[in-house]
Design a protein around this nucleic acid. Structure first.
Length: 226
DNA sequence: TTGATGATTCGCT
DNA sequence: GCGAATCATCAAT
């Protein structure tokens, strides 16, 4: 196996605001290498997160241990864990200190489909292998171990290369991002119009508070174990 | 320390 | 269409 057999996007590609990088990523090839082999996808859906000016961005409220990678140099992978069970991956953009990034939301598996399907717990239909940010991470076997990886140097477990087929700018659509409750008006989600591997839109709604005893009849229900 | 919540997915109605 | 699953993170206590 030759990890360097595909051309890599240069770091300069990512050294721009995420809103500029995002549409240019559509159609590009994103892959992961492991002992089991390579899984590669053609990106069809991404979202831009703009740091300090974007309330929906993890970096909006400053640097923390979790989002530190976003504040570093461009061309690295920012991987985070959410909902107690899922991982999502971003490409860090902009110069160091400017924490913008592009969330990878969906792709079409073009290599290693069998390996990807084996990693999926359920629903391994080809169309759904990498349809959704957490599914895509599962298909590419991305988790905490990949946080901070440099995708612009040969030999990394993760790599990304240029388009192998051209993309007509007219085929790139954009609109509101999915699943967020802040800044829902910013049209920073980009996708390839008509591509069946793009996920479907869901409005982000705050969920009802859980586990609240719903203090009603009995204020002092002393037996509140678990 | 505690408590609320999340850049989601899956299964059931 | 709706809610559960499930836990790391962060703001508030």
């Amino acid at each position: 196996m030759r990890p360097d057999q595909r051309e890599l996007l240069p770091r300069s590609f990512f050294d721009r605001p995420a809103t500029e990088v995002a549409p240019d990523l559509l159609g590009c090839i994103f892959w992961s290498d492991s002992a089991d082999g390579r899984v590669a996808v053609r990106l069809v859906e991404v979202e831009a997160y703009m740091g300090g000016i974007d309330p929906a961005s993890h970096s909006f409220r400053g640097e923390t241990k979790r989002n530190a990678v976003m504040f570093g140099p461009p061309g690295h992978a920012y991987v985070y864990f959410t909902y107690g069970m899922h991982f999502c991956v971003n490409f860090v953009c902009s110069p160091p200190g400017e924490p913008t990034a592009v969330l990878v939301r969906a792709g079409e598996v073009i290599e290693g489909a069998e390996l990807a399907a084996g990693r999926r717990l359920s629903n391994s239909r080809p169309r759904d292998l990498a349809r959704g940010p957490a599914r895509l991470c599962q298909a590419l076997s991305i988790d905490r171990g990949e946080d901070g990886i440099d995708v612009c140097v040969p030999g990394s477990a993760l790599g990304i290369g240029p388009r192998v087929t051209s993309v007509d700018p007219a085929d790139i659509s954009h609109g509101p991002r999915i699943g967020i409750t802040q800044a829902q008006d910013r049209p920073w989600r980009f996708w390839l119009a008509g591509d069946t591997h793009v996920s479907s839109y869901r409005e982000g709604k705050p969920r009802r508070a859980r586990g609240k005893p719903l203090a009603s009849a009995d204020g002092r229900d002393g037996t509140m174990q678990r």
